[in-house]
Simulated assay, not measured.
Amino acid sequence: MGKQWKLLLCLLILATSLLSGCWDNRELEERNAVLGIALDLVEIDGEEQYKMTVQIPIPIKIAGSSGEGGGGNENAVKIVSGIGRTVMEASRSLQLRLNQQLFVGHTRILAVSEKLARRGLSDIMDSFRRDPMIRRLMWTVVVKGRAATLLEIRPQLSQIPVIFQMEQIENGIRMGTIPDQSLGEYFNDSASKVAQPFLNYVEASQNELKWRGVAVFREDRMVGTLTPVETWTLMRLRNKRRGGMEVVPIPGTENEFITFRPKFMETKITFQKNDNAPGDTNITATFHCEVKGDLLESTGQKGGLTHSREITELEGIIKQEMERRAHEVVGKVQKEFNSDVLRLGLKLRAQHYHDYWKHHDWNEDFKDFPIRIVYTIKLQRLGMAM
């Protein structure tokens, strides 16, 4: 029996020696957690290089982290920059200036300058795609001007600027006014041979961050922007999102408007074949958009809406204006940008692969593809009236 126990003990020792354990563990206090990354182009000795700027929180300075109550938001974060010919070289240059290892597992925002976006993002995105620590749910935005200004703002409502910006974006997504466009969404669209990517477009000032719409890409290069109102139209056509409030002028009047807030949205795409159409483009796409919402105000309406005829008339005015705006947006992304941010090609390839798709180059033919938009407006709540 003694020999058996000795043999069992030897086997246990051998088994435990094969366990790796936490040989490479590192305490949180030994890391610099990066909350935000900004990338700009700078010229060094006549050569364009990348400037990486990061925002690092200082735990002891954050209010509530110590018995003294912490400090103000100007002391709660540290902003550090590094320069290099590649993103990883800039990261290495930045690391050499810090006393602890950089940790990007908690990074929430990646900002790139408009100049860099118009040059192309394929080179910088390569390193982020390969790094397993980078979150695919990170918010990626294009900044008007320097990207580093996004990390330098000092909002009055939060000690940590990146947390304020993250909550601002997430609140807009919940309200349906800002597209849910993360780093993972950009990777998916940029890798697709059909769809084209877009990113949120922002402008940073000293104390606030303003959402300016979206930056539209063709492959990896930014080719233009859409305003917030145009972006809401794009969200309805592409993502079936309700977007923001629509202020519609009343025809035949001066300074009289209807304010309409979409609540429920449904979009369907159908294709119609016309064998008698000239040339080889015999298919037309139609976006059918059904929008149900509330009437928030009508500056030209005196008293309440008591007749169904008046409600139908208002629905017709809203329908006409939203269709006009939608055709303008589609014309812009087709003729000016030639970028299928509508993801129309995905539907077309799935439904008409043999009779259209394999005979055409969608990246070139998208700009001339016939598209119709038809809205159906339903007013659900008209508000209180005396």
Rank of each mutant, 00 (worst) to 15 (best):
D180C: 03
Y353G: 05
G252P: 11
I44Y: 02
L150K: 14
S93T: 03
G331K: 07
A326K: 03
P197Q: 03
G316Q: 01
Q159N: 13
N25Y: 14
K51E: 01
R26P: 12
A277N: 10
L348T: 04
V329A: 05
Y201V: 06
M166L: 09
G69A: 07
Q156C: 08
D131V: 01
N207L: 09
K115F: 02
T149W: 11
R324F: 12
V142N: 08
R324M: 10
V214C: 12
Y186N: 08
E29T: 04
V142M: 05
F187R: 03
D275E: 15
D368N: 11
P228H: 13
F164H: 14
N239V: 08
D180V: 02
F271R: 12
G316Y: 03
A285T: 05
V374C: 11
N99C: 11
W232T: 05
R119K: 09
Q380I: 14
V42P: 04
G224Y: 04
N363E: 09
D294A: 08
G279M: 05
L296E: 14
R218H: 15
W362S: 10
E89Y: 11
M245Q: 10
A63N: 04
I62M: 01
L151E: 06
I83V: 01
I311H: 06
V162W: 03
D40R: 00
V80N: 03
A350V: 10
V223K: 08
T376S: 09
I79R: 00
V42D: 03
L234M: 00
E323C: 07
M175H: 15
E89M: 13
I56T: 02
Q196M: 02
R130H: 15
I79V: 00
I83N: 00
A326G: 10
T16G: 14
I83D: 02
F271K: 10
V142Y: 09
R174N: 15
S182T: 15
C289Q: 06
K358V: 12
G304I: 09
